[in-house]
Design a protein around this nucleic acid. Structure first.
Length: 508
RNA sequence: GGCCCCGUCGUCUAGUGGUCUAGGACAUCGCCCUUUCACGGCGGUAACACGGGUUCAAAUCCCGUCGGGGUCACCA
């Protein structure tokens, strides 16, 4: 029976790299009819937090990754994941901080057999042999004893180090395949040595290459701080207006002395800065679909062959194999992710896209769209913006003019010049002629408006462009909008007429 | 720096000695469609890091160089 696990340390948000590791581990277990475990390596007392634990569980769930053993995710946030009652599985508890007694037994055993020794309050394991093992991705790996040092397995605070805990837990939880990031490749000899000393079977190891930024640097949470710092460089920040609790950190932050997330977010907010997406939560906020993130991230270092690129988690589970995992690091290409997201959005049933969009706005804490339009209008907007959206944030951005105030809409000077003023203000003339007709248009819906516009164009010897463009500028302020009849239908008769009046008044 | 690992279009990759005049996707460029935008359709540009071998034959095997990454913590 195949058993895999994802074992994050709860010290922050779930990173895309971690998401990929989790996804591969999950897919491998599911594809082999095995079990998948989520376990938390919280042996770093200072940095671990319950909030981080909850967020990681939330993000795994959002991605569509489910687990057979581990803490149960509670969306309400009321249940304490550390409570054994809120954990599922026969090999728990699933927090290393709750397994201290177990680790101590093994440390004692190693001590008794002379394979480890005390070093102050800590305990070190003796590394005195050459180590060789087979990695499913990288092939045979061997390290000479001379290149290995005795390492700490029990810290002075009584907690085991990651090395000891990971080996003991994987053995006790009957893990057969360890799929993890490449950064652990050079730790593996230590783990193998420990397994041999303790008489544990060696799991199959598979290390995945890293995910890098487009410039080749490592993709890390620090990139957000770096971006904020760079943007703040030659700007004056309203430090006095910053929340009191972060005010003192700001100077140090700008001085590269800390990478405070709170300061980073504050700078992004006051500078209206877009931070790079690094964590799974960032991608959710930016309006990416979970299945697309999974799809894209799986493609970084793995592919099913045969030129298939678009697939869901079910397909991944059926086809994923360690043989096809690449060895080279991959750069994260947001353009391709965006293209995949746009494609997935375009292929969604309209109602589903509408629902996703509305929920997305609600989750992000509201939107002028939610305040201004009723459900039916929101759904009409969704239908119109679905083919134009690459993310769930796009409708609000592209359709910002819909929620503008009728009396303060801004006009793009170039659009006014080109569409309204050219040819002795032909565009303004069109608006004037159309005003009456539109006022009498009945009913006020897309097809009727379209028919009206078409016959108007024909009667007056104009092309559709001659009539649609002036209207577009009048109601949106620019030359870009969804098809004009849809735009007007959604906007409503009153707003349409008001905007036409004002446009003639202001630009005529 | 020591040790380990990696190196095909700008990016992700297919490719496991001959089927490679190197395929796909994203990006990019051009054309078409068109009431704008987006979509869509068609077409183009673009890669085997470099240098030596091995072989009848190398992107595919070997060596070296260069470039990149990881790791050297009582963090994971």
């Amino acid at each position: 029976m195949v058993v895999t696990r994802f074992a994050p340390s709860p010290t922050g948000e779930l990173h895309v790299g971690g998401a990929r590791t989790a996804l591969f581990s999950w897919a491998f277990a599911r594809g082999h009819g095995g079990r998948f475990i989520v376990r938390f390596e919280d042996t770093d007392q200072a940095r671990s937090s319950t909030q981080s634990t909850r967020n990681i569980l939330r993000d795994l769930t959002w991605l569509g990754i489910d687990w057979d053993e581990g803490p149960i995710y509670d969306p309400t946030g009321e249940k304490d994941p550390y409570d054994p009652a809120n954990q599922r599985g026969e090999h728990g508890p699933y927090f290393q901080s709750q397994r201290l007694d177990i680790y101590r037994q093994y440390v004692q055993q190693l001590l008794d057999r002379g394979l480890a020794y005390r070093d102050g309050e800590a305990v070190r394991f003796r590394m005195d042999r050459d180590i060789a093992f087979e990695d499913q991705v990288f092939g045979p790996i061997s390290v000479a004893a001379a290149d290995l040092e005795d390492f700490v397995i029990l810290k002075a605070d009584g907690f085991p180090t990651f090395h000891l805990a990971v080996v003991v837990d994987d053995a006790l939880m009957k893990v057969t395949h360890v799929i993890r990031g490449q950064e652990h490749l050079s730790n593996t000899p230590k783990h193998v040595a420990l397994q041999d000393a303790l008489g544990f079977p060696r799991p199959v190891y598979a290390h995945t290459p890293s995910i890098m930024n487009p410039d080749g640097s490592k993709m890390s949470k620090r990139d957000k701080a770096r971006t904020a710092r760079a943007a703040a460089k030659d700007k004056t920040l309203p430090i006095d207006a910053a929340p009191p609790e972060i005010r003192e950190e700001i100077a140090d932050f700008l001085d590269k002395k800390n990478d405070s997330m709170a300061v980073t977010q504050w700078i992004a907010k006051v500078l209206d800065l877009k931070l790079p997406e690094i964590d799974v939560a960032d991608f959710r906020e930016s309006g990416y679909l979970p299945q697309v993130l999974c799809n894209y991230v799986a493609l970084l270092g793995w592919n099913p062959g045969n030129n298939i690129e678009k697939f869901d988690n079910t397909f991944l589970a059926q086809h994923f194999g360690l043989e096809r995992v690449g060895k080279a690091n991959a750069r994260f290409d947001r353009d391709k992710l965006l293209a995949f997201n746009a494609d997935a959005i375009a292929n969604l049933p309209v109602e589903e896209f509408a629902t996703l969009w509305i929920e997305h706005m609600k989750r992000r804490g509201g939107s002028p769209f939610l305040a201004k339009f009723d459900e039916a209008t929101l759904r009409a907007l969704a239908a119109v913006y679905q083919p134009r959206s690459r993310t769930l944030n796009d409708p609000e951005v592209l359709g910002a003019f819909f929620v503008a105030d009728d009396e303060s809409l801004a006009y793009d000077p170039k659009a006014v010049q080109k569409v309204l003023h050219k040819n002795e203000k032909a565009g303004i003339a069109v608006l004037g002629e159309l005003r009456e007709r539109l006022a009498g248009c009945e009913p006020w819906d897309g097809p009727t408006i379209h028919a009206l516009l078409e016959s108007f164009a024909k009667e007056t010897g104009r092309g559709m462009g001659d009539v649609a463009q002036p209207l577009r500028v009048a109601v949106s302020g620019s030359t870009v909008s969804p098809p004009i009849q849809d735009t007007l239908a959604i906007l409503g008769r009153n707003a349409t007429l008001a905007r036409i009046e004002r446009c003639i008044r202001v630009n005529g």
